[in-house]
Design a protein around this nucleic acid. Structure first.
Length: 268
DNA sequence: TCCTTATGTACAA
DNA sequence: TGTACCTAAGGAC
């Protein structure tokens, strides 16, 4: 479930289980060849920026992890079971273990390489150092659709396909509007909403976007949690009735990703 | 058992 | 714009 909230939650969870402890580092699958260099070192810090996760050993040895579409992380209590052959990275100490499978990236990087990653990412609603104006400067000058801009990690870091669809619905913004038609007030509201929604996502480790007045209980419909684990307005609800207007939710391809929106509630 | 699908990104043409 | 890549679950047969 890798959008930004997942990665920030993982940074917290890795730190809670391993920070300050000498940690066994291994790559049962064998593709993270730097594991041997880190084995037995102390995990000192963890950090997230957008969908990128960073784990520090001995202050300056950083593991850079990106889950991509398929990456998954599993935590458990010691003793760790024998790893399966798809485990790219296992950390273990006397009390806990964690397995990483299927990431796009798992590599040992230098502080300079880490800085280069931060430099190419846009502001992250979950980071204290985020500057929403930096995102708006790019959005307000672009003829690209707001739906595509929200997915561009150089513009804003951490928003994925679920938050993209949901935040546009919550602000009644048509996904095909060009970035340069989004007003400063609209952007301020969207940004603040992302901060709130994604913080809640970190807390609960899932995405919920439905306002209290539109919950199943409030609307007299049966409670239902969508496949991805949260209650949402439009994501993966194609052809189902809109929670607000009862019209059909639509879906389309946009830049090779599935877009979902309500054509009635989200007006051009 | 095979096929499809997925909350992502990078690179080639 | 298309394609490659990493994994696992669910559904069709």
């Amino acid at each position: 479930m890798p959008e930004g909230h997942t990665i920030h939650r993982l940074a917290q969870d890795y730190a809670a289980a391993f920070r300050g402890t000498r940690t066994q580092v291994s790559s049962p699958q064998g593709r993270f060849t730097a594991a041997a260099l880190l084995d037995g070192a102390e995990l000192t810090r963890t950090e997230a920026h957008g969908k990128h996760l960073f784990l520090a050993f001995r202050e300056t040895d950083w593991i850079h992890i990106h889950l991509g579409l398929f990456g998954k992380v599993t935590f458990g209590a010691a003793p760790a079971p024998p790893p399966t052959d798809t485990v790219r990275l296992r950390l273990a100490n006397p009390t806990a273990y964690v397995d990483l499978r299927g990431p796009t990236t798992c590599a040992l990087i230098t502080p300079a390489e880490k800085q280069a990653i931060h430099d190419r990412l846009g502001p992250d609603p979950l980071r204290d150092d985020a500057d929403p104006e930096a995102a708006y400067r790019r959005i307000s000058r672009s003829r690209t659709t707001i739906a595509a801009l929200l997915m561009d990690q150089k513009v804003i870091a951490g928003v994925g396909n679920v938050y993209r669809a949901e935040v546009l619905f919550r602000h009644r913004v048509d996904p095909y509007r060009a970035g340069n038609t989004v007003t400063p007030a609209e952007w301020a509201a969207i940004w603040q909403d992302l901060v709130d929604l994604m913080r809640e996502g970190v807390r609960n480790n899932r995405i919920d976007t439905v306002r209290p007045e539109h919950t199943p209980e409030a609307m007299g419909r049966p409670p239902r949690v969508d496949d991805h684990g949260g209650e949402v307005y439009v994501y993966r609800r194609a052809d189902l009735p809109c929670h607000v207007c009862a019209g059909e939710i639509r879906t389309a391809d946009l830049a090779a990703r599935n877009l979902f929106w309500c054509p009635t509630c989200q007006t051009p």
